[in-house]
Lab assay of single mutants.
Amino acid sequence: GQTTVQVRVPYRVVGLVVGPKGATIKRIQQQTHTYIVTPSRDKEPVFEVTGMPENVDRAREEIEMHI
């Protein structure tokens, strides 16, 4: 079944991970077949990644490449 993982990043890289108009996070979602919730600016900088476990792992690696 599907799993949801929280990926915490430093505040300063949230914009990098999301990309211009969300382009980068969309690409990560498409490439890894996951659904990613982006943290809002006034909340903790935690991305929520949902999908099959192996896909979630890949998405987390993609996010962490920006750190």
Results as ranks from 00 to 15, higher is better:
residue 58 R to G: 04
residue 64 E to Y: 10
residue 24 T to V: 06
residue 22 G to D: 06
residue 58 R to C: 09
residue 31 Q to K: 14
residue 11 Y to N: 13
residue 48 E to I: 14
residue 20 P to L: 05
residue 4 T to S: 02
residue 59 A to F: 00
residue 3 T to K: 07
residue 12 R to L: 05
residue 48 E to W: 12
residue 31 Q to V: 12
residue 50 T to K: 06
residue 49 V to L: 05
residue 54 E to S: 10
residue 48 E to N: 03
residue 42 D to S: 09
residue 63 I to F: 00
residue 6 Q to M: 11
residue 51 G to H: 02
residue 39 P to Q: 07
residue 49 V to M: 02
residue 55 N to F: 03
residue 61 E to S: 12
residue 37 V to E: 08
residue 32 T to L: 03
residue 2 Q to W: 09
residue 61 E to F: 09
residue 27 R to I: 01
residue 66 H to R: 15
residue 46 V to I: 12
residue 15 G to F: 00
residue 62 E to K: 12
residue 32 T to M: 04
residue 65 M to K: 15
residue 49 V to G: 07
residue 18 V to R: 06
residue 37 V to H: 05
residue 19 G to S: 04
residue 19 G to F: 01
residue 45 P to L: 07
residue 16 L to N: 09
residue 10 P to Q: 02
residue 17 V to T: 06
residue 3 T to V: 14
residue 63 I to C: 03
residue 63 I to H: 02
residue 8 R to N: 00
residue 50 T to Y: 05
residue 30 Q to C: 02
residue 40 S to P: 14
residue 21 K to R: 11
residue 46 V to G: 03
residue 26 K to W: 03
residue 36 I to D: 03
residue 66 H to S: 09
residue 10 P to V: 03
residue 62 E to I: 09
residue 55 N to H: 05
residue 22 G to A: 07
residue 35 Y to I: 13
residue 2 Q to A: 08
residue 2 Q to G: 08
residue 53 P to F: 07
residue 29 Q to G: 09
residue 19 G to H: 03
residue 25 I to S: 03
residue 38 T to R: 08
residue 20 P to R: 13
residue 15 G to Q: 11
residue 16 L to S: 14
residue 36 I to P: 03
residue 43 K to V: 08
residue 28 I to G: 01
residue 48 E to G: 03
residue 24 T to R: 08
residue 19 G to E: 01
residue 44 E to P: 08
residue 23 A to H: 10
residue 39 P to E: 08
residue 35 Y to N: 14
residue 38 T to L: 10
residue 14 V to P: 03
residue 49 V to R: 02
residue 11 Y to D: 13
residue 59 A to K: 04
residue 35 Y to T: 15
residue 42 D to K: 12
residue 36 I to V: 07
residue 11 Y to H: 15
residue 15 G to A: 13
residue 41 R to M: 11
residue 44 E to W: 03
residue 20 P to N: 14
residue 67 I to P: 02
residue 34 T to G: 01
residue 25 I to Q: 01
residue 2 Q to I: 11
residue 47 F to Y: 04
residue 61 E to C: 12
residue 50 T to V: 03
residue 26 K to P: 06
residue 66 H to Y: 14
residue 36 I to E: 00
residue 23 A to C: 09
residue 61 E to I: 07
residue 41 R to I: 11
residue 51 G to W: 00
residue 38 T to P: 13
residue 49 V to N: 04
residue 16 L to T: 12
residue 61 E to M: 11
residue 36 I to S: 07
residue 59 A to M: 09
residue 54 E to D: 12
residue 56 V to G: 02
residue 3 T to L: 11
residue 67 I to M: 04
residue 35 Y to P: 02
residue 28 I to W: 00
residue 26 K to M: 10
residue 66 H to W: 12
residue 66 H to P: 01
residue 57 D to S: 10
residue 65 M to D: 10
residue 50 T to P: 00
residue 28 I to S: 04
residue 24 T to L: 01
residue 16 L to V: 09
residue 20 P to W: 05
residue 58 R to Q: 09
residue 39 P to W: 05
residue 18 V to W: 04
residue 9 V to P: 01
residue 5 V to T: 07
residue 7 V to F: 12
residue 19 G to W: 01
residue 50 T to S: 10
residue 58 R to I: 00
residue 7 V to Y: 03
residue 51 G to L: 02
residue 23 A to I: 09
residue 49 V to F: 01
residue 6 Q to S: 13
residue 30 Q to G: 05
residue 37 V to F: 00
residue 59 A to W: 00
residue 10 P to H: 01
residue 22 G to P: 01
residue 43 K to G: 14
residue 39 P to D: 08
residue 55 N to D: 14
residue 24 T to F: 01
residue 32 T to K: 01
residue 29 Q to V: 03
residue 42 D to W: 09
residue 27 R to T: 08
residue 20 P to K: 13
residue 57 D to M: 15
residue 46 V to M: 09
residue 54 E to P: 10
residue 15 G to H: 13
residue 3 T to A: 02
residue 33 H to T: 03
residue 56 V to D: 03
residue 13 V to L: 15
residue 13 V to F: 14
residue 64 E to C: 09
residue 44 E to V: 07
residue 61 E to A: 14
residue 46 V to N: 05
residue 51 G to A: 04
residue 65 M to F: 10
residue 30 Q to V: 06
residue 28 I to F: 07
residue 3 T to D: 07
residue 20 P to Y: 10
residue 41 R to V: 12
residue 12 R to V: 04
residue 7 V to A: 03
residue 15 G to K: 10
residue 56 V to S: 07
residue 48 E to K: 11
residue 21 K to Q: 10
residue 8 R to P: 11
residue 19 G to D: 03
residue 47 F to P: 00
residue 38 T to A: 13
residue 6 Q to F: 13
residue 9 V to Q: 00
residue 43 K to E: 11
residue 59 A to Q: 02
residue 23 A to G: 07
residue 58 R to T: 00
residue 17 V to F: 03
residue 45 P to G: 08
residue 25 I to R: 08
residue 60 R to S: 05
residue 26 K to Y: 00
residue 22 G to C: 03
residue 31 Q to R: 14
residue 34 T to E: 06
residue 16 L to M: 15
residue 12 R to N: 15
residue 11 Y to F: 06
residue 21 K to L: 11
residue 56 V to L: 05
residue 59 A to E: 00
residue 67 I to Y: 15
residue 22 G to W: 03
residue 31 Q to G: 05
residue 19 G to M: 00
residue 40 S to F: 09
residue 7 V to G: 02
residue 14 V to H: 03
residue 37 V to I: 12
residue 46 V to R: 05
residue 20 P to A: 08
residue 6 Q to I: 09
residue 16 L to R: 14
residue 49 V to A: 04
residue 14 V to I: 15
residue 4 T to Y: 03
residue 28 I to E: 00
residue 47 F to L: 04
residue 29 Q to K: 02
residue 50 T to Q: 05
residue 42 D to T: 10
residue 54 E to T: 10
residue 40 S to C: 09
residue 21 K to D: 11
residue 2 Q to S: 09
residue 6 Q to A: 12
residue 67 I to V: 15
residue 49 V to H: 00
residue 5 V to E: 04
residue 39 P to K: 11
residue 6 Q to T: 10
residue 2 Q to L: 14
residue 53 P to W: 01
residue 30 Q to T: 11
residue 23 A to R: 14
residue 21 K to G: 13
residue 27 R to P: 01
residue 6 Q to N: 04
residue 21 K to I: 06
residue 30 Q to W: 06
residue 53 P to Q: 11
residue 57 D to R: 14
residue 35 Y to K: 15
residue 38 T to S: 13
residue 27 R to W: 10
residue 28 I to T: 09
residue 31 Q to N: 13
residue 34 T to L: 03
residue 6 Q to L: 13
residue 35 Y to L: 13
residue 44 E to H: 02
residue 4 T to R: 08
residue 55 N to G: 10
residue 57 D to T: 14
residue 1 G to R: 13
residue 3 T to Y: 09
residue 13 V to Y: 12
residue 34 T to D: 07
residue 55 N to R: 02
residue 55 N to Q: 15
residue 32 T to A: 03
residue 4 T to N: 01
residue 38 T to F: 06
residue 7 V to K: 07
residue 43 K to W: 07
residue 3 T to C: 10
residue 8 R to Q: 04
residue 43 K to L: 05
residue 31 Q to F: 07
residue 62 E to F: 11
residue 12 R to D: 15
residue 4 T to W: 01
residue 34 T to S: 02
residue 7 V to S: 06
residue 66 H to T: 15
residue 24 T to S: 03
residue 26 K to Q: 09
residue 66 H to G: 07
residue 4 T to A: 06
residue 14 V to K: 04
residue 60 R to D: 00
residue 31 Q to P: 04
residue 19 G to C: 01
residue 30 Q to P: 01
residue 39 P to V: 07
residue 36 I to W: 03
residue 37 V to Y: 04
residue 52 M to L: 13
residue 64 E to S: 10
residue 51 G to F: 03
residue 34 T to H: 00
residue 42 D to N: 12
residue 34 T to M: 02
residue 43 K to A: 14
residue 14 V to F: 09
residue 24 T to Q: 01
residue 61 E to V: 11
residue 55 N to E: 08
